[in-house]
Design a protein around this nucleic acid. Structure first.
Lengths: 356, 356
DNA sequence: TTGTAAGCGTTATCAA
DNA sequence: TTGATAACGCTTACAA
């Protein structure tokens, strides 16, 4: 029934060469006559040989050494990512991966590039970082790949050729989704919509806003989308600007916040009577957005699923390290939360134990 | 830096016993004096020993043998699940799992129970099946677990004690979500909402409908939820009933379909002028629901993410087989699709190849 | 250019 | 009740 998987020993026998020769061909170590190489490749083909990664790792006593580099600072989302990583550590060790968490100054591509350059001689097998299109960062990523490290961009992408994979959501699509949901909330009525971003110069924010405007223009031409606020992802700034605009324009029926600093937005919303609250869509499920959802101050949260992203990033780095095909491709599909489908609060994280 | 993980050899040395004795204790094989056992357990504790699963599997030449049992029939959703499984096969083989796909008559618990009974002597390590509360099925599941198989319920759950894990969405929560989205689409206006289920006797449908009604009653008391239609998951029947009701009650502003047979619903919607179409929310992204979303006939699809569910089910079965802690718990969070965030159509599935 | 063999951490068998 | 040890499929050092 289940035929035994062929091993390299089988391949060698089939090709009529020694085990070592077969190994040299399969792992491209060179120093093999073309004639032998041909016979081995033929045997691999015939038998459908695939390298047993577990055995290979065992023989090398290999542990995967990966690093995740996150921006420093008080950003709630990255704080959550940090928590997820430290919770996963124990489980990962069992699977022989040693995950290191490192921090660099936020919004400082030069510092990031310098940090990356330092990793090269660190015995690492792979790095995951928040992508940045800065030329120095790109060059540092390219250098790491030349050294054989897997490089995965997380959350924000860069040009294809500098990384092995991107793990994150499609931000334009996320913006379109927000647009459509706000559109749905205006079924049968008109409205004026206020968009907020951190900065238009941030690629992800610009992508979201672009998708948002495009969808509303195409599918809901009756709705007005106002000029966007740039809140710099800072809650005081967001709070001040939103408060001012809402006061000046009482006809606003919806708000889409594509960036961070949403606790400022929430404070403004708290100050309004329930009947006067606009429909609000924003990004990332963190402590304060969760609370706002529960209290009915916010209607929809589009969440990037950071836990799944970390898992996927590790899978990608491992695939490169194992010289194996990459896991299923495609951007991560964000979760859409309303107050009714919030996952249990991970306040006290229950440790999973064997069920028997 | 990265200290070598302790091995059983280390444990044995530390405990002052032979390797074999340490192995006996750690794997509960018996035949060890209480004194030795104590010393070994102490050493395990001290060193923080964890069994190296890869090495264990290698020594046994183990391949995991799992089966997924699905209901037969033309149901589009299960068809998709079948496709996903056959596409995953190759990748799974590399990870030493041999996944078998089996089929039993839909809605026939006796047949399912009989089939399960047959699996016992089949050398399987685990089974995933769509849960059923039928006593015979429960008994068969319990028997399998007694034989050491992992038993995972998929999509629909049963009483805890009969299975190792449930992989699927929380159907009540999904219904609540549908209710809230439809509520959002009625911001600032009244409406009459028609719910459709396959059968109220199906636990998942009843759960969805319950959550749906509850949320609308609590958060949108101004909306009217009509009595539900039972469409038996059959498209002709759904089509006929919906057509009749829509004709009789032109004031219907929204439809929530909690079950299958939605191609019938879509046909009715096609026949109406765009301006007269109700807001429509339904479940499972399959060929016809996808098309309906793209054409603007349907507004929201709540999708169970079958690909992720299969992956998770395998992870659970493997954890049991490896005597390892279960992967992260909690129900699967469904994806919420509008026409703007549909994933690429898997019409021609691109085979992933090594990226370098 | 080719071949042999010692490890890696388990499981399982056989002997003491 | 205990202990040695041959696999498992691979990498790597070394010998021919």
């Amino acid at each position: 029934m289940t035929r035994r998987m062929p091993t390299l020993t089988d391949v060698a026998r089939h090709a009529g060469v020694s085990y070592a020769t077969a190994d040299r061909v399969v792992n491209g170590r060179g120093g093999v006559s073309e004639k032998s190489a041909l016979r081995v490749r033929r045997a691999v083909e015939d038998l459908g040989y695939v390298r047993n990664v577990a055995a290979a790792n065992l023989s090398q006593r290999r542990t995967y050494r990966f690093a995740v580099i996150l921006p420093s600072g008080p950003n709630a989302f990255f704080g959550k990512v940090r928590d997820i990583i430290s919770q996963e550590r124990r489980r990962l060790r069992r699977e022989l991966v040693d995950l290191r968490l490192e921090t660099v100054e936020a919004f400082d591509p030069e510092a990031l590039a310098a940090h990356l350059a330092g990793l090269a001689r660190d015995g690492l097998d792979g790095v995951a970082l928040v992508g940045s299109d800065h030329p120095k960062v790109c060059e540092a990523m390219a250098a790491l790949r030349r050294d054989g490290l897997a490089v995965v961009t997380l959350i924000s992408d860069v040009t294809d050729s500098f990384r092995d994979a991107y793990v994150g959501i499609d931000n334009r699509v996320a913006g379109c989704t927000a647009g459509r949901l706000i559109g749905l909330a205006h079924t049968g009525r008109a409205g004026r919509i206020l968009p907020i971003v951190g900065a238009l110069s941030a690629r992800d924010h610009a992508d979201r806003l672009g998708g948002f405007r495009e969808t509303l223009a195409a599918r809901h031409p009756g709705l007005t989308v106002l000029p966007e606020i740039e809140g710099r992802d800072r809650h005081e700034r967001v709070e001040a600007q939103v408060a001012e605009i809402l006061a000046a324009d009482p006809g606003i029926t919806a708000i889409y916040s594509a960036g961070a600093g949403n606790s400022g937005l929430v404070r403004v919303l708290e100050g309004r009577a329930p009947a006067e609250r606009p429909v609000v869509v924003l990004h990332e499920l963190v402590a304060h957005s969760r609370r706002a959802l529960e209290q009915g101050l916010v209607d929809v949260v589009i969440d990037q699923r950071p836990a799944e992203e970390i898992t996927l990033a590790i899978a990608h780095m491992r695939a490169v390290a194992d010289r194996m095909p990459a896991p299923a491709a495609g951007p991560v599909v964000p979760a859409i939360y309303v107050s009714e489908n919030l996952p249990p609060d991970p306040g006290a994280v229950p440790q999973g134990e064997p069920s028997r």
